[in-house]
Design a protein around this nucleic acid. Structure first.
Lengths: 254, 254
DNA sequence: TCAGCCTTTTGACCTGAATCAAAGTAGGGA
DNA sequence: TCCCTACTTTGATTCAGGTCAAAAGGCTGA
């Protein structure tokens, strides 16, 4: 039992150079010795349990965080007191980028399941970026990618029906799982209908109804958290594809 | 006449160190000699006329652009062929940040009125950032601010009524004009109801109706493009204020 | 094993904003 | 000057999705 814990901690504390996420994460495109310099500033704590906070809105910003295993949601509080989900974050995704700006976190983050995190002290990351041009470049790309991603999300929320939003959400998860080596068509949702609805700006009932409908139409098989995509074609067909098609054969990351 | 052109071009080509936007723009917080090094890479072309493109979606990314005077909209095309406004950009605001990621512009930008632009070749900006830590820091903040801004916009689009959106839009313009030394309560809209609606994800009729209603309620005086805010208090009261109030007395920029 | 709680599903109804339609209104060009 | 076009306003109608309500599973812990 103790033995088992030790092994699992060791696995979690794997160095960047040996980490399976290195093609998704910050080290992407760095030279091996630069990866080691980056690795030297990474701090790896014990895993978070479901419900644990990674950080809270208003807290001072010190670190960026990368999800290593598990899943995290970020959220803010509306003034009616209920929470508004801002994003779901899978392994290799970086959290805290919005906080660089004013030195404090604008949203809270908590684990949706048992989750391992790599912590990067931002001041040290800045120093390192000054000395490693390719890391600076990678940082710029990372930030820019976040901007693009949010712009896409705005476009989605903006001009689309409930059907499109739920379809997009499933497609996005599917693609992200696939890139991480999991099944693109058979996975478990680590978040509730409530949280999905909050994220997509839909009532939880609407999410539920669409899952049911997609199932009735033979597109999905849904049983609670377990989702199987039976007809990815049709799901893709529901989504408004960006017209500037050129972007598609450009960048195959995150 | 020729004389006048020369003078106006001279005015447009003012160096960063003499530019009134220096507290809003990239040079913010740089040492004077570093501002000059930044200035050396800035290119200033002739002003754009209303309707001129600054860049188009799909074009290769080479430069960041800063609005110097005037106003620019960014937009994408939906697959139904109509344009979707992504943002309105006032003096001191930087365009193109989303394109760093994959080397091409994800949206198009065109002038809403006669507009002067400063152009920053991104490769040279990266080099300079490597050599000037405070510039690198400024760049990170700039990118992070864009992320925060989009997150706020998502929150707005997400969870709010047409009334809240239009109120927010007016408040945002008001604050941005104020920071730039213009009146916070009396200004001209450089965009159409159509464009406002597209930006806020509302039908143009809805925007028009709300302008009318706000006027009937004594909150605004609207005559076509000319807007006067009569009761900013009440306008503010319509908007969902973020609960994490701490953020407010944090960072007084853009 | 059962009780209690929480999540999810399903149904009925209602409403805010979209859509459709048409009438003003301003500005630019011949 | 007047016309033409584009923008804006206003009204009538429709409908997607929210809200309210209640039932049905699952899961946890005693």
């Amino acid at each position: 039992m103790a033995q088992k814990n030790v092994i699992s901690l060791d696995k979690i504390k794997v160095a960047c150079r040996d980490c399976s996420l290195s093609t998704l994460c910050l080290p992407m495109g760095l030279r091996p010795d630069d990866v080691d310099r980056l690795d030297a500033i990474v701090k790896r704590n014990r895993p978070l349990q479901r419900g644990d906070h990674l950080f809270r809105a208003g807290e001072a910003f010190r670190n960026l965080y990368v999800v290593k295993t598990g899943a995290v949601k970020t959220f803010t509080q509306t003034n009616e007191g209920d929470e508004q989900v801002v994003g779901f974050h899978l392994p290799g995704e970086v959290l805290g980028l919005d906080a660089i700006q004013d030195g404090q976190h604008g949203c809270s983050a908590r684990a949706l399941e048992t989750t391992a995190i790599c912590e990067l002290p931002f001041d040290r990351l800045e120093d390192l970026s000054s000395n490693i041009p390719s890391l600076q470049h990678q940082m710029f790309r990372l930030l820019s990618k976040e901007i693009s991603h949010e712009a896409e999300m705005m476009a989605l929320l903006g001009r689309s029906t409930a059907e499109e939003r739920v379809a997009s959400f499933l497609i996005s998860l599917s693609e992200r799982f696939k890139r991480r080596g999991f099944s693109a068509t058979d996975f478990f949702l680590s978040m509730s209908r409530q949280e999905i609805g909050s994220y997509l700006d839909l009532a939880l009932e609407t999410v539920s109804r669409l899952f049911t409908r997609f199932q009735d139409e033979g597109i999905l098989k849904v049983e609670r958290k377990h989702v199987q995509i039976l007809d990815l074609e049709r799901l893709n067909g529901m989504v408004v594809h960006p017209t500037n098609v050129e972007r598609h054969h450009a960048n195959p990351s995150t």
